[in-house]
């Protein structure tokens, strides 16, 4: 009945014509057991809390063990460099400058005749301390400001976002030069602090954006109608759901801060010259990069391994904390 097929079928008075070939009434044999399962749940008892689940998840990933090992070794070296070498990194003998690897000195000597292996071990501390400290400060400062701006909105947002923009406009190195050049006692803490003061803006922007999108979810409204206070909702629901991009950025930032410390040291306004750091050694090695690249190789390698370790760990943690990314 092609001529009246837009009429509701039920009302058409004509009897149904015989179906055409290929359109006869067909019924599949009844399915065994499949039908009742429309709304069934996958059921088996597994651990309950988010953290315990995350741990179970991480434990099974080789990347977790690789990055964990790297981080433990780096931290050990940073804390107790004396355990790994008995040579004083500051005891240099110009007569041995640029000598190649030899017994007791596996990495050879730099231009000042210092033992590169020893300097790489001792340099870990300053770099790791600056990197970890600056990153923690940036995460705390940036997340707080970004979350308040994004969650409370209105004039909080206007003011905090403008402040963020102002700091965003100041180049990190320029700002650091101004502050460090007037500082009298240049410690690792001060370097980290200066880096954090000019480095939190990116993370504040990221947090604000994620919080803005998370706070419109219905589970937030549900929490509100339970009578939960705004601050409580922010801490319990909104922030955990905004954590993923923050973790990712923080692990990247860690590497950037270690490099930034090197930049400051290279400009002579970072850590004092008597402090051994990867950054300082990398900048010192730059002059000889064409003739003796191996001097650069070791401190730079230490930096790369550290940054890589933290970034891999960040990836693993982010995946484990996100129930959506979990595989069973």
């Amino acid at each position: 009945m092609p001529e009246n097929r837009y009429e509701p079928v039920g009302r058409s008075a004509t009897p149904t014509p015989a179906p055409r070939p290929g359109q006869e009434h067909f019924t599949a044999p009844a399915d065994e057991g499949g039908l009742g399962a429309v709304d069934a749940v996958a059921t088996d008892e597994t651990p309950t809390s988010l953290w315990r689940d995350a741990w179970h998840q991480m434990r099974r990933r080789p990347l977790f063990w690789v990055s964990g090992t790297v981080i433990v070794i780096v931290v050990l070296v940073a804390a107790f460099p004396g355990l790994f070498t008995s040579i004083d990194p500051r005891a240099c003998d110009l007569a041995r400058a640029l000598e190649g690897p030899q017994a007791g000195h596996p990495f050879g000597f730099d231009r000042q005749g210092c033992d590169i292996y020893s300097r790489t071990m001792y340099g870990a501390r300053a770099s790791v301390v600056v990197g970890v400290l600056a990153t923690s400060m940036v995460v705390i400062l940036g997340t707080t400001i970004g979350a308040i701006a994004g969650y409370y909105g209105k004039w909080f947002d206007t003011i905090l976002s403008r402040i963020t923009d102002i700091f965003f406009a100041i180049p990190l190195v320029l700002g650091a030069i101004v502050i460090m050049s007037i500082a009298t006692n240049r410690t690792s803490f001060l370097v980290a602090f200066v880096l954090a003061v000019f480095g939190w803006t990116q993370i504040a922007r990221i947090t604000r954006g994620t919080v803005l999108s998370v706070k419109n979810n219905e589970f937030v409204t549900a929490a509100k109608s339970l009578g939960m206070g705004r601050g409580q909702i922010l801490v319990r629901h909104v922030l955990p759901n905004s954590a993923a991009p923050i973790i990712v950025y923080a692990t990247v930032a860690l590497g950037q801060f270690i490099v930034a410390e090197a930049t400051l040291s290279f400009l002579g306004i970072g850590l004092p010259p008597d402090v051994v750091s990867w950054g300082g050694d990398i900048s010192a090695a730059q002059g000889a990069i064409r003739t003796d690249p191996e001097i650069l190789l070791y401190p730079a390698g230490g930096l790369a391994v550290t940054v890589l370790g933290f970034m891999m760990m960040g990836d693993v943690v982010r995946d484990a904390l996100d129930p959506k990314a979990r595989k069973r």
């Binding site: 079928v9 039920g10 149904t16 179906p19 359109q23 006869e24 009434h25 067909f26 019924t27 599949a28 399915d31 499949g34 039908l35």
Partner: peptide, 14 residues
């Protein structure tokens, strides 16, 4: 249903 055609035919009859 679940990837299979379980029934087909004229609308009215179904």
């Amino acid at each position: 249903f679940k990837g299979q055609v379980v029934e087909s035919g004229p609308a009215q009859q179904i």
